[in-house]
Computed example of a mutant assay.
Amino acid sequence: MTTPVASLVPGRVEEVHVQHGDEISKGQLLGLIRSDEVGQIESELISKLLELEAERKQYQVKMQLAEKIYERKKLLLEEKIGSRADLELAENELEQERAALRAISDKQSAATEACVQRLKLFGIERHEIDRVIKTREVHHLFEIRAPRSGVLTMRDADPGEIISAGKTLFIIADLSQVWLTAQLSERDVSKVKCGLSVKAQVEGYPNLEFPGHLNFIDSHIETETRTLPVRATIENKERILKPEMFGTLTIETGKASALFLPSKCVQQVGEASVVYVRKSGDFYERRVETGRSLGDNVEVLSGLNEGETVAEEGSLKLLGMALQRLSK
């Protein structure tokens, strides 16, 4: 299973900390990208917030003055010196200043949210915006971190390279399990379903079998080959299997007892299949009925019992001797 790691931030590659084939841990720093475009957005946010903060201070001064005027008009009214009209006018001016302060807060929230939405397009998280608001500092460097553990199977980034947003820089593969895709004969389609146990063999390790299970069956037969694409998840805890290896997939559709012989034990005499069974130190020809072939082995349906010894390497020679006797 592979996971591409892309940079949503456009810019220049500043540092790359990994090499092809490295073991990668989740969260590990893979590289740094310098993005002036993202830095510009953060700079605009800081400028807007500073501007609004200056306005806020002005309105706070005005509101403090309005509060003092209101309190004085209220006291004059209580002492029968001022008029209620003057008090109501002062109260109205105070509310206007309070409303102006609330509007500044709304503008700050709107500016922040607009910046958040713009930076989301580059994969920048909210905590980065919070950092900018708190520190008033612009970061031009952005980290590319591994989303999962695995092996780095592709690196397409070098320091100094200019990259566009969305470019895949790395691919991380979890090789503890691998996918093996295979083509299933049309006649066997009805025998399989997802979840069945499978065994895989690859050319690089012909004597090893790798267990797994079927996890995908395509919905369409390929018209040219009359086969159905299937895929299995194969256990690979020792990391023996590598991407792009060729192999064969055996799907366990059920269990049944059967007698199999190496194919070289069975010889053809006309249309008959024969084997040479050892008895009392000699070999005797016996006709058998054969069935399925499985690799280098053939199934014996009848004519032979389990435990009997048959000739393997010399069976062809025994056939030749038998034919010579017949010709005489």
Score class of each variant (00 low, 15 high):
4 P>L: 00
4 P>W: 00
9 V>Q: 04
23 E>G: 10
39 G>F: 02
40 Q>H: 10
46 I>T: 00
47 S>M: 09
58 Q>L: 13
78 E>T: 08
83 S>F: 05
84 R>C: 01
85 A>M: 06
86 D>A: 09
90 A>V: 01
94 L>T: 00
96 Q>M: 09
97 E>W: 10
102 R>L: 15
104 I>M: 06
105 S>V: 10
106 D>S: 10
109 S>P: 02
111 A>Y: 05
111 A>T: 07
113 E>C: 08
114 A>R: 13
120 K>Y: 04
120 K>T: 02
121 L>W: 05
123 G>K: 05
131 R>I: 00
134 K>S: 13
135 T>S: 13
137 E>R: 14
138 V>K: 10
143 E>C: 08
145 R>H: 09
149 S>V: 06
149 S>Y: 06
151 V>P: 09
154 M>I: 10
156 D>V: 04
159 P>F: 09
168 T>C: 09
175 L>A: 05
178 V>H: 00
181 T>C: 01
183 Q>K: 14
187 R>S: 10
189 V>C: 02
190 S>F: 07
191 K>Q: 11
192 V>G: 03
195 G>T: 07
197 S>L: 11
200 A>Y: 06
209 E>C: 07
211 P>M: 05
218 D>F: 04
222 E>N: 13
231 R>T: 07
233 T>R: 15
235 E>Q: 15
236 N>D: 02
236 N>Y: 04
237 K>F: 10
240 I>G: 01
242 K>G: 03
242 K>Q: 12
248 T>Y: 12
249 L>R: 02
255 K>R: 14
260 F>N: 03
266 V>D: 01
268 Q>Y: 08
268 Q>W: 07
270 G>E: 04
272 A>E: 13
275 V>A: 02
277 V>Q: 04
280 S>V: 07
284 Y>G: 07
292 R>A: 12
293 S>T: 15
302 S>A: 07
304 L>N: 09
306 E>K: 15
309 T>Q: 15
310 V>S: 02
310 V>I: 04
313 E>C: 05
318 L>R: 00
319 L>V: 04
322 A>E: 08
323 L>V: 07
324 Q>W: 04
325 R>G: 05
325 R>L: 12
325 R>M: 12
327 S>N: 10
327 S>E: 13
